[in-house]
Nucleic acid binder design. Structure first.
Lengths: 213, 213
DNA sequence: TCGGTTGTTTGATCCCCGTCAAAGACCCCG
DNA sequence: CGGGGTCTTTGACGGGGATCAAACAACCGA
């Protein structure tokens, strides 16, 4: 499985993965490991598989001709992605960090009912994302983003961001500078607290919820 | 069918519909008629039916607490809508103009395959809408909107807009003033031509396509 | 046909966020 | 432990679109 050449980008393998790094991406049981920024599928490719994120994260995006990038979805640990209209991928999918994926074949394994539920949830999430990007201020977008991620990770109060400020900006329709300024604002207001750049503790969930619109 | 009380808002019935206006909404064969701004379903309601637009148009939207509105989809003649995750409507649906709808029951009439295709198309459209709203300028958004509508009406070169500037603004994340200014700009550039406020002729489709990003 | 209401256009001004710039923090890898 | 590249933060400034305001056009009902 996962024999495509494009995920061979030799990464700066982190210590935790090093023992497995011989034939990258190595398989642990059914889990394939990917370096950050590895392509999982490309726009125009035939879609045949679903993927389940075991750890790490995936960005699904499209590029405009002039290089602007819009990320339409992140997929976090425990989530399934790869289902697309017409059996052809309309977007690119890449890892944002070191990521483990397992494959789910479309034929079998999942019953039509589950597939339908997955499709409808994806539609709902895209539409809710639209609410955020269409009508909210920078601060509200960042707030909504943090709430969404925290809920999806199981209502945690400390989030380990699995993506860069650039990824977050391209997801929310903001620049990295505005993303950073919004995070700083939330910190200065005492709503969140940073333990390192990528680890955010939500100190006042009520106030965070309030400013999401 | 269509016995809910909320579409009884006595409308300013247009001449064309007047003969039928006795028991509103009247049925012509299987088609129910609705005045502009009639509610088809509300957020939180149990979803049991699909609706097919025979003529007119539908807006699907949600309101923020402070009154900001985001329209997540328009549905035009020939399109089917009403399919939602969890069997409960997550959005409001209203007519934008005088509209005829026919009901499609979820159980039967449509095979699971068709339902799946509908869900996946809706997800794709929401994501493509996200590309427009997330990263494009006002002029690009209006351009993309016109192209999308023209294609969905069957690659026509003259569009009868079934919605107001306010609807368009709330769909694209713009104010009515910006929508109006963008239309004026397209007119001044000779890309489109207006025959009345709601009728747009696309004079130079190539140039329109160019500025969609 | 006429008057009132609603929707649209255009102008003037303001502000949020994008852009440009540079310092600072973090993370690898040697 | 130390050096270099990448990512992040912060500051200064400018512009695109929001806001405020008013004239104008379209629509509908009387």
């Amino acid at each position: 499985m996962f024999t495509s050449a494009r995920n061979l980008t030799q990464p700066s393998t982190p210590a935790a993965l090093r023992p497995l790094a011989g034939s990258y991406p190595p398989c642990v049981g059914q889990i394939a490991l990917f370096a950050p920024d590895a392509e999982i599928f490309a726009q125009g490719e035939r879609a045949g598989f679903l993927y389940r994120v075991e750890f790490g994260a995936i960005r699904v995006y499209r590029l405009h001709a002039d290089g602007r990038r819009q990320i339409v979805a992140f997929h976090l640990a425990g989530e399934t992605f790869g289902l697309e209209a017409g059996g052809t991928h309309s977007f690119f999918a890449e890892t944002t960090v070191h990521t483990g994926l397992s494959k789910v074949s479309l034929a079998g394994e999942m019953v039509p009912q589950e597939l339908m539920a997955l499709a409808l949830r994806s539609m709902l999430h895209a539409r809710e994302h639209l609410l955020v990007v269409g009508r909210q201020s920078a601060l509200e977008r960042i707030g909504a983003f943090l709430v969404d991620i925290a809920v999806r990770l199981g209502d945690v109060d400390t989030i380990d961001l699995q993506m860069t400020r650039l990824d977050i900006g391209d997801y929310l329709g903001l620049t990295i500078e505005t993303v950073s300024r919004s995070f700083s604002r939330l910190r200065d207001e005492g709503i969140v607290k940073f333990h390192g750049v990528k680890t955010i503790e939500i100190v006042q969930p009520e106030r965070l919820a309030l400013l999401c619109g």
